[in-house]
Design a protein around this nucleic acid. Sequence first.
DNA 1: AGTTATTAAACGAGC
DNA 2: TTTAATAACT
Length: 803
Amino acid sequence: MAPDLDFSHERGPIRHLLNYREMSQEPMQVGSDPLLDDLTEPQREAATHVDGPLLVLAGAGSGKTRVITRRIAHLVLRVGIPPWNVLAITFTNKAAGEMRERVAKLVSERQARAITVCTFHSLCARLIRQYAHKLELPPGYSIYDTADQSRAVKNALEALEINTGNFPPAKVLSTISSAKNELIDPDAYAASAHDFYSKTVAKIYRKYQEVLAQNKALDFDDLLVQTANLIRNHPDVLAELRERYQYLLIDEYQDTNHSQFIIANALGAQHRNICATGDPDQSIYGWRGANIRNILEFETHYPDAKVVRLEQNYRSTKNILAVADALIRNNKHRKHKSLWTENEAGDPVRVVTVYDERKEAQWVVEQFQDWHDNKKVPWGGMAVFYRINSLSRVIEDALRTAGIPYQIARGTAFYERKEIKDAVAYLRVIVNPFDEVNLTRIINTPARGISEATVEALRAAAVAQNKPLFEVLRSVASLTAVNARAVAAVLRFAKMVEEWRKALGIFENNNARSPIFDLNAPDTPTSADDLHSIENQKSKIENPSTLRSFVERVLVDSGLHEHYRTDKTDPEGERLANLGELVSSAQQFEDDLEASLDGRPTTLHEKVTAYLEQISLVSDVDTVNPDQGAVTLMTLHAAKGLEFPVVAMLGVEDGLLPHSRAQTNPHEMEEERRLCFVGFTRAQRMLMVSHARYRTIFGQTTPTIPSRFLNELPSNHLQVEDISNEESWTAGEDRFSGINAQREAAREAAAQYRPGELVRHPQFGLGRVLTINPMGAQTRAQIAFNTAGVKTLILQYARLEKI
DNA sequence: AGTTATTAAACGAGC
DNA sequence: TTTAATAACT
């Protein structure tokens, strides 16, 4: 049993803070500043740094966030920097929220609200909205998620008449994404493309950008690219931003990519008050363009930078830290850092071998139960990490069966559901009439009599007339290819959307200077002062309704509500409930927004736009609430920046961690090791690591090899257990009897049908068995049907009938 | 036109 | 295993 450790000092409230005015009247004595008193020397050095570049190399658990928040408070309270001059960039919205909260405990609520704390992506999204007119975008531009991007690429491929077979959208998109992260535009990409594949990608890239431009849409990478362009091409904007953001803090600097680097440096180049914090050993996003050199070469970019190293760890026990440190020492490309702690030695790190993933889950659940019942660790203090999302299922099942509350960090999953994507697509189309991807998604969802053929005719007309698709809807009557019933349906749909737009104060008096179609609408002086002043155009009618009621109205008017209310395929009403949850999320957003606006007016239109922006940029961890009293399940990537008293890491096996795709590339292998290191260093008191002898992935059970990383761990800090044989006799028998039963069934099924026999299929009718291919549960039969031709069917699923 | 069944295809991490 | 695209049916 581990002695009780006190981990509370990290988050202790700071009392009796003096504000700046009091300070200046009555100077504090050196060493008695409550902002700094409880900091160590290096921490204080970083926290009190005011002007000029600062690099904080912060080891895991070294109190980095604390230093950042204190530094912000110090700047505002002691130095007297206006809070709106401070810009802190974090890796996730959740981290931003936490940082703002922690700062708010040091400074006043009001001051805290004036500080900008956000992620790169949300900063860029807001800047683009604010300066939309300079980028030929409407402020209601769409942000495309992966699914939308994939649609856009498919459109591009279609237009170029390229077969998707050789150019799967996902693969093309990842190539394009890498290019964008390096700020390589289609021209530059084409210039460096020499082989057939990249030359074709160059064409697709160009077309894809055209499609996005047509739709007035940006993908995630474009948010950064466009911001970089904005800053580069508009010196006035850059000057404004530099004036506004005089003190820059960028957290997790090791995971910034080239475009983020460019943006940050452009903002900071003049005043040079740029503070980067991070840890090269925790760089785990190389695959999405993060450039570890940004942090390694910070001192080259800023030779006068002050460098502070935080090496004392306040988070973990000695054992955990020793194990993590031993692991990371195996990376060759690395600057060594000596992590140390004054914490207790604690329990050894447990490394356990289990039989399979079910046993693994069961073991973890047992351990958690013990920590909860006997060591009084709340459920919220425990977490399960894994390399790939698909490992979450088994542990979920086990936790559910055990009745243990859990939450999964999969914030985006909610917005990926069809019903939610549909509902959001309506909102997108309302604020962005150019968004064809979302328009085609909802034009006949739910079914309202607008067929595929009708949509095709409309699209053709839009291309022919060189008009946005939505504008063509109104002239649908002139299209001969569309019958009267469809015309009525289209007009009804267009009318409905226009009604919603009216409710937002958007008017479209036929091709007049309707604000939403008019990109050259008068430039209202948008200063960086107020990022919340979103749109240039103000609502022309006083609309009393709220965001919540607007969303509800769209759900009802569109028929989505009714459709899912009566959906027979969803008897539980789960989808309807999800729509309900969307409505409450709108309500929640509205409440938060009102609070942060502090009485300043907003239009409904602005609210919808801001809401759409927010839901486009939620990250997986954003939804995790530690005080929820639930075990947290997440990927190792999502775990960055978090900490839990008890941590279990699943599937520490070769092929999973390190992932099989990293095996051939030494750099990727080191990133895998860093990923493992990140996982280890999240643990405060107990770290358990498990690997199974057999693992079933995609229905295929295969023996595994323990992760090579396990061999790198110092045995004197470990407690190694192999429980793969315990009770596995019964479990093993169950398992094999299960498999055997399946095989038996398949054999029987195979035996049942012999080549030459006549069978009947509910759909295909009469047929004759040609061959039987016994493959266990996957046993297939080739059958020649009288009318349907030769088909290969899986016996288990095909409801065949012997004749 | 719209729904439902069947088959094929994807499976690394995410803003 | 899940999801997406396609084919068949009502």
